[in-house]
Design a protein around this nucleic acid. Structure first.
Lengths: 252, 252
DNA sequence: ATCTGAGTTTTGATATATCAAAAATGTAGA
DNA sequence: TCTACATTTTTGATATATCAAAACTCAGAT
C-alpha cells in the first residue's frame, strides 16, 4: 500500500481519543479500502483481542457502523458486511448523483488554484495506478480525488452525507473493481470535470461529475451481469471471507 | 399529543429488540419531536436510571446519535443537543434540497391513489393543527407528510439519508417554529405538490417541493434575524433546558 | 454420504465495577 | 460581593462478569 492519499475526515464529532472512536475509524477505513469482503463477518471479541482492548468499545464502534448501514446484523446478531444487491447499489448511486452534482457545483464556485493542481495530481496518480494494475491504490486515489471536490464545496454536511454513501459501496466496489474490464479512454471524465471546475462553471462541473459516476457504475454493473450468467452454469464458491483485523495490534 | 402520525421507519437494520435499539429509537423520536431543546445536555446515567437499565446500552444509543450529528460531544465528553448556527442550518437545507427534489420526482412516478389521498389528509390535519396553534402536532404531521413522499420514492437509501437530515434540524425547528409568524396563505405549497404528484409530473413535483422547503426556511431564518437584533439590546436568558426523559419508564 | 439433534463452545447483550476527567460545591481571601 | 482554589461529587470510558441465544461439533440414524 503505497498511498499517502488524503484521509477521509468523516470520523468527526466524536471524542477524538476514545478507544471506540479509534476502532470506528479503523474499521471504517478498512471497509472503504476493501479489507473486508461483502459477506465477511465481524467478531466483536476477536477485534477486541486483536486490538488488546475490551469488547465494549468495539461493540460500540461496530454498532455505529451498523446504524450507518456500513454493516448489517445477521438475524439481529452478528455483524457482517452487507452483500449489496444490484438494486441497492443503484439506489445508492441515484442518491449520490444529485449530491455529487451539488458538491461539484459548489466546488466550481469555491475552488482554488492549489486545489485544481491537487486534483490534476490525484488524477495523474489514479491513471498511473490503474495502468500498473494497482487496483487498491487506484480506488484509493480515485476516492481522494472525489473527496477533495466534496470538500471544496465548503458544505460540511454535504461532505459527510456523500462520504457516508461511499462507505456503503466501499466493500462492494473494492470487490468488483479489480475484475472490471476498463476501456482505456484517452479523455477521462475526470479531466473534463477538472476543466469545468477550473472554468468555474457549476452546471458543467455538476453534469460531468454525474456522468463520471454513471459511467463507472455501468462498468461495474455490466461486469456483474456477465458474472451472473457465468454462475448460472456452474455454481461454485460462496463469497465468504473472515478476515481478521490488520495486524497493527500489540499497541502497548 | 393527539397524533397517530406515521412513525419514522428510520431505526432499521439494528436488532429490533435490544435495549440500545429501544433507547436509540426513543431518543431519536424525542429529538425529532422537540422534547430536547438545542443546548440541552444528556446524562447517560440519568437516562439509564429513568429507563431502569444499565448505562451501557444508553451510551451506545447516545454515541450513535453523536455519530449521526444529532448530538454533539461537549469537550469530547458530555453529549448535548447541538445549537445550530444559521450557516449550519442553511448547509443542511441545501443538502436536503436536491434529495427532496429527487424523492419527489421518483414519488411522482410511483405514487398511488391511496397515497395521494393520505397526503391530502395529512395536509388537512396540518392546516388544522396550525390554525389551532397546536405547533408540535403541526410539525409532526408536516413531517409525516414529507416522509410519506420520501417513501413513495421507493428508494430506501434516499429515505434514510433525508430522514437523517431531518433529525439534525429537529430540535432547532421545534424550538423556532412556535415563534414564527406565518402568513396564512390560501394556496399552500403542499397542495401544489400534491397536484403535481397526482399529475405524475416529476419535474413539477421536484420544483415545488424545493420551493416549499425554501419558503419554510425563510420564515425561520427571518424570524431568527429579528430575535438576534432583539438580543442585541438586552441579553437575558441562555437557552439551556435539562429535560429528563419522558416518564414512560417503569417498564417491568 | 447426508441429515438430524444433543451437547459444547462461542458470541452478543447487558449489568456492574473501576478509574480518571470534569463538574459542582464550598470556603477563604481580595 | 466576587474570585480563586481545594474538595467532593458526578459522569463518561473502559474492563470485566454473567447469561442467554446462536453457532458449531460430532455421533447416530437414514
Amino acid at each position: 500500500m503505497s498511498a499517502d492519499v488524503i484521509e477521509p475526515e468523516a470520523a468527526d464529532q466524536v471524542a477524538r481519543d476514545s478507544l471506540s472512536e479509534r476502532i470506528y475509524a479503523q474499521l471504517r477505513l478498512e471497509l472503504m479500502m476493501g479489507m473486508y469482503e461483502p459477506g465477511a463477518r465481524l467478531n466483536i471479541r476477536g477485534i477486541a483481542a486483536t486490538s488488546d482492548i475490551s469488547p465494549t468499545p468495539v461493540r460500540e464502534a461496530v454498532m455505529q457502523l451498523v446504524r450507518e448501514g456500513a454493516l448489517e446484523l445477521k438475524l439481529g446478531h452478528q455483524a457482517r458486511v452487507p452483500v449489496l444487491s444490484v438494486r441497492e447499489y443503484i439506489e445508492i448511486r441515484e442518491t449520490r448523483a444529485p449530491l455529487e452534482r451539488l458538491a461539484s457545483e459548489l466546488a466550481a464556485v469555491h475552488i482554488t488554484k492549489d486545489e485544481i493542481a491537487s486534483l490534476r495530481d490525484l488524477h495523474r496518480r489514479f491513471v498511473e495506478a490503474e495502468r500498473e494494475g494497482r487496483w487498491k491504490d487506484a480506488l484509493a486515489v480515485n476516492q481522494a480525488f472525489h473527496f477533495l471536490i466534496y470538500r471544496c464545496s465548503q458544505n460540511a454536511t454535504l461532505v459527510r452525507v456523500i462520504e457516508n454513501l461511499w462507505l456503503l459501496i466501499g466493500p462492494f466496489i473494492n470487490h468488483q473493481y479489480p475484475l472490471v474490464q476498463r476501456a482505456h479512454i484517452e479523455l477521462h471524465p475526470h479531466l473534463l470535470v477538472i476543466d469545468a471546475l477550473e472554468r468555474q462553471s457549476p452546471s458543467e462541473a455538476g453534469e460531468l461529475i454525474v456522468r463520471d459516476l454513471r459511467e463507472g457504475s455501468y462498468l461495474i454493473l455490466s461486469h456483474l451481469e456477465d458474472e451472473k450468467s457465468k454462475k448460472r452454469r456452474g455454481r461454485k464458491s460462496r463469497s465468504e471471507g473472515a478476515h481478521s483485523l490488520s495486524g497493527k495490534s500489540r499497541t502497548s
